[in-house]
Design a protein around this nucleic acid. Structure first.
Length: 193
DNA sequence: AGCGGGATTTTCT
DNA sequence: GAAAATCCCGCTT
């Protein structure tokens, strides 16, 4: 399955599709490999999305080709990263909310100053762990030093679908996805809401 | 265990 | 000028 094929179609479907896929990050001569365990979908038709009000300097990448990385800065000190989805001209992307370390766990925990699930169970934590900042905004995820590797789709019965976290508009849109029973998914308790 | 505030800067109104 | 797709610490129960 190619990267481009996996990123086309409805963005909420892409968000579910990215669960179980790997991100490979080269940094300072070392490699970190993580599994995506939690995502959220955002689309220009969605009031919670940065792309809702149309293309701006900040959201330019969201409207570009699929497979690029959209990085934004928020709350004065945090970065969050998204995988751009859909055709050029459509403002859609998938927020990477949580990952599970597969390789390079020691480096990840050292970069975060935390161990265990608290090292990577939140969108800004993922960026800090993997060293993702504004320099990687617009980066092509088919090329080093940051590669998105598509894995076989997970069985639907292993995926949980809920409303999104940390937004004030379109709270009822159930576009958050995570791998059931995965301890690295952030705050599973919110699933019932 | 749960709540509340502070950090800190980009972006849009 | 205010809000923001967050995180962490410290205080209270």
């Amino acid at each position: 399955m190619s990267l481009q094929t996996a990123l086309q179609g409805p963005v909420e479907q892409v968000a579910a599709r990215l669960l179980g896929c790997y991100l490979e990050r080269r940094l300072d001569g070392q490699t970190m490999l993580v599994k995506i365990v939690e995502t959220e979908a955002y689309h220009q038709s969605d009031a919670a999305s940065h792309s809702y009000k149309g293309k701006t300097e900040r959201t330019r990448v969201m409207f570009g080709p699929a497979g690029h990385l959209y990085v934004y800065f928020t709350y004065g000190l945090h970065y969050c990263c998204n995988v751009v989805a859909g055709p050029v001209g459509e403002g859609s992307a998938v927020l990477i909310r949580a990952v599970e370390p597969v390789r390079g766990t020691e480096l990840i925990e050292a970069r975060r100053g935390k161990t265990g699930i608290t090292a990577t169970n939140g969108p800004a934590k993922v960026c800090q762990a993997l060293g993702i900042d504004k320099q990687l905004n617009g980066h092509e995820l088919s090329r080093p030093p940051l590669v998105l590797r598509i894995n076989p789709p997970l069985a639907p019965s292993t995926i949980a679908q809920t409303t999104r976290i940390g937004i004030s508009r379109a709270k009822d849109v159930p576009w958050r996805f995570y791998i059931k029973d995965n301890p690295y998914a952030s705050n599973p308790v919110l699933a019932v809401k």
